[in-house]
Amino acid sequence: MTENDPERLQKLDARLKAARERIEGGSGADRQQSAADSKLAAAGWRMSLELVVGIVFGLGLGWLVDFSLGTKPWFMIIFMFLGLAAGILNIMRTARDIQRHQR
């Protein structure tokens, strides 16, 4: 037993706490940063197609309805706009997800 034993114990205490945080608290700051980056990239990819797919889906659905009801081209036009709106809706949701993750 020497005089600096309590000091050494305190250091050990700090190291134990750090180890516990590493295991339970999970990741360090940079790991979270890179995860956020890849999430942003993924969100960009998600947005890239929504409009096109929305419009094409609307056109297809409208064409089907028109074809079966003989109302060309009205439902095609209506559903095209609905599809566009749906695409915009999906993009807005994606954008909100990104904001939520960034916070």
Binding site: L49, G54, V56, F57, L61, L82, G83, A86, L89
Partner: peptide, 18 residues
């Protein structure tokens, strides 16, 4: 509601086309 339904149904399409 139609917009929500369409946005739900275009999911598999945008997922696969992408």
């Amino acid at each position: 509601i139609p917009i929500e339904i369409i946005s739900y149904f275009i999911r598999p399409m945008s997922l696969s086309v992408r």
